[in-house]
């Protein structure tokens, strides 16, 4: 008989060793110690994660604070420009608002509405109308544009207001538009624009 065949035939005799009874208790202890370890590791991970989260919150707070400070400085600067005596500065402020502000700001919008009614410079008023059109759903802006159309006397600003209200399809602008059309002192080009706007709004 070949040696491998002999061993295969008597394989049971080669595999008769058994583990001692003590080993069960040892294995149980080993299992416990090993199985408890992952929990500890999990806790450790949680600890690290919470520390990392704390750092993230602190860093985010610092950035947020810096941004807040920066934006409040920007706002102050902008309001100072809008309140300036020089028309150039006011115009600069309006353009800055138009370029940099994506969110509505009550204080700035109030100031812009006031410029719309009271500013002496037509260019500032025209730029203000463009800036206010950034927020077409703001009711206050719509009402102020209508009111400005009723009171405005400068033809260029009148045309700008007519076009703005036409873009907004503001039905409430019909009365001031009619008033403009019927007014003998209104420039013909303003009348033409008002008529076209009426058609546009009534479409």
């Amino acid at each position: 008989m070949k040696i491998k065949e002999f061993i295969q035939e008597h394989k049971a005799a080669f595999t008769s060793d058994k583990m001692s009874s003590n080993s069960d208790a040892n294995f149980e202890a080993l299992l416990k110690s090993k199985l408890h370890q992952p929990k500890k590791q999990k806790l450790l991970y949680l600890k690290y994660i919470s520390i990392a989260a704390c750092f993230a919150v602190v860093i985010a707070s610092i950035f947020w604070f810096q941004n807040t400070v920066k934006s409040s400085q920007n706002k102050k600067e902008l309001l100072a420009n809008l309140n300036a005596d020089s028309a150039g500065k006011r115009l600069e402020g309006v353009y800055k608002f138009n370029d940099e502000y994506e969110k509505e700001d009550k204080k700035i919008i109030n100031r812009l509405c006031s410029l719309l009614h009271k500013d002496d410079n037509a260019n500032v008023k025209i730029a203000t109308i463009d800036a206010l059109l950034k927020f077409p759903s703001n009711e206050k802006i719509r009402k102020n544009l209508i009111a400005a159309l009723e009171n405005e006397e400068t033809p260029l600003v009148q045309i700008k207001l007519i076009k703005a209200l036409s873009i907004l399809r503001e039905n409430r602008a019909q009365k001031p538009l009619e008033k403009l059309i019927n007014n003998e002192e209104t420039f013909p080009i303003v009348k033409n624009n008002a008529t076209l706007a009426m058609v546009e709004i009534n479409k």
Binding site: S16, D17, M19, S20, S23, N26, F27, L30, L31
Partner: peptide
């Protein structure tokens, strides 16, 4: 069976017991 394999290779029952347990944990 695995214990027997371990004993045959390491020629020591104690060492074989330890390594079988370690292997199961692994």
């Amino acid at each position: 069976m695995m214990f027997c394999s371990a004993v045959r290779i390491v020629k020591s029952r104690e060492e074989a017991e330890d390594l079988v347990q370690d292997s199961f944990i692994k």
